[in-house]
Design a protein around this nucleic acid. Structure first.
Length: 141
DNA sequence: GCCAACGTTGGC
DNA sequence: GCCAACGTTGGC
């Protein structure tokens, strides 16, 4: 079981949009970055991820699950780009802000803190546990 | 709205 | 294969 973080601008694709897709889930398409794509290729069915709102909110707001492994991105003909499908699992009781992550020494190595621009990131088990704790949810989802 | 960080592109 | 130029992202 691996953990991930998916970053999105709420104006483009928000947590509410994700929830509206229900158990069917939705393609995490539009990624045009090799590192992000490579991370998606590593994902397995049932892997869990955080849903992060960038820009104004800058906070982890929910938990998602990978419901389809990497496949060609339907929004482009370019075979280089692949994506996974994810579905909403549950929201955090309390959003965990970027500010909180930066302030917590246990999260000082987090990709979110150190590489703000990567849109699909790995999250360590420890980081997962800490953020679930801060967010007021069960880390086992 | 600005700017820093980073990734990609293309000329050499 | 290197590196400068450019475009994009995202925090502030």
């Amino acid at each position: 079981m691996a953990y991930w973080l998916f970053k999105s601008e709420p104006s483009t694709w928000s947590w509410d949009d994700q929830v509206a897709k229900g158990a069917v889930g939705e393609e995490w398409d539009g990624v045009r970055n090799y590192q992000a794509r490579n991370n998606m290729r590593l994902m397995a069915l049932g892997d869990l991820g955080f849903f992060y709102h960038s820009q104004k909110e800058k906070a982890v707001v929910g938990i998602v699950e990978v419901c389809k492994t990497a496949h060609p991105d339907s929004t482009t003909d370019d075979p280089r780009w692949e994506c996974v499908d994810i579905r909403a699992v549950k929201p955090l009781a309390q959003a965990v802000t970027l500010e909180q992550c930066k302030a917590d020494p246990r999260l000082s190595e987090m990709v979110l803190v150190n590489n703000t621009r990567l849109s699909v990131q790995p999250v360590s088990q420890e980081e997962w546990r800490v953020i679930c704790d801060l967010g007021g949810v069960d880390a086992s989802a």
